[in-house]
Write a protein that binds this DNA or RNA. Structure first.
Length: 270
DNA sequence: AAATTCTCCTGAAGGC
DNA sequence: TGCCTTCAGGAGAATT
């Protein structure tokens, strides 16, 4: 599924092909995404220039002079550059046709979205209350300590809350907590600043490593649909419940936290 | 207010 | 082989 590293990879992969280009046509084959694709998207965007593509959290933002197209890949979405003549498949719901290439949005489960918002896009309800980027300096010990203070919520749920910090999905939350030696169910407010400091660094390390892996798929991203398997080989806990801990060899346990699969080592994480 | 549960959806995987 | 059932999960909405 698209985690932050894949969104980053997508952004870097498609941007150079379409930034500064004219949108000649918007083709919506199925508007039933998480929210309906706006009816007037075509008239809003056609015959205008896309200035740039950038990322905020897991949102892909397509900036025009008069507003921003907000894209999210949900669980199964992808965006790629295709030739104009490439015939659409069943789950290819939206095309942005540019002069030279087509940007194609595919999403079997339709958990993603394509929306429009006038400037400034930071006013949009989906973006207005997002926490800092995990790899930025704004995500630091002070920030996490303040976010955890007095909270009874499990630490894993807290770091997956996009209002606290964006882009830490289930896989990376599991991995970062293992790396930090913190039990995922531990109450956020009962973790020392010292340990939260370690967790901040572990989140950054895990995400940075994954982005680096995502970078390896970058070069062929435009003509393939992003394989999710490229970072699997270095996962320490996610998907390994019942197997041995890579550190102490104890059997990794699995629980549910929220609706999410949570895997941890009873020996290494406290 | 804070925390948890529900919800959207479809393909993959497992059971019999 | 094939038809079940279950599960996966981002994140807003609903509920407790």
């Amino acid at each position: 599924m698209p985690e932050l590293p894949e969104v980053e990879t997508t952004c870097a992969g498609i941007g150079p092909h379409i930034q500064g280009q004219l949108v000649t046509k918007v083709q919506v084959r199925d508007k039933r995404l998480r929210w309906p694709v706006p009816e007037n998207l075509s008239t809003t965007v056609e015959k205008t220039i896309l200035n740039r593509v950038y990322r905020r959290g897991k949102y892909l933002l397509f900036e025009f002079d008069h507003g921003v197209l907000i894209g999210h890949l949900g669980m199964t979405g992808s965006m790629r550059i295709v030739a104009h003549e490439e015939p659409p498949s069943f789950h290819d719901h939206v095309d942005l046709v540019f002069t030279d290439v087509t940007l194609r949005y595919t999403d079997p489960r339709r958990f993603g979205c394509i929306l429009w918002h006038p400037h400034p896009v930071t006013d949009h309800p989906l973006l207005a209350h997002l926490g800092p980027e995990p790899l930025s300096d704004a995500f630091n010990t002070d920030h996490l300590v303040a976010a955890c203070r007095g909270k009874k919520q499990a630490i894993k749920s807290l770091i997956m809350d996009s209002k606290k910090v964006v882009g830490v999905g289930n896989i990376y939350a599991n991995e970062a907590l293992f790396m930090a030696g913190i039990h995922p169910h531990r109450q956020a407010g009962r973790i020392s600043s010292k340990r939260l400091s370690v967790l901040v660094e572990c989140c950054k390390k895990v995400l940075a490593a994954a982005i680096e892996q995502g970078g390896t798929t970058l070069r062929d991203f435009v003509n393939s649909d992003g394989k999710p398997g490229y970072f699997k080989q270095q996962l320490q806990v996610y998907g390994r419940a019942g197997s041995g801990c890579v550190t102490c060899e104890k059997t990794l346990l699995e629980s549910r936290l929220g609706q999410r699969s949570t895997v941890y080592c009873k020996g290494c994480q406290t």
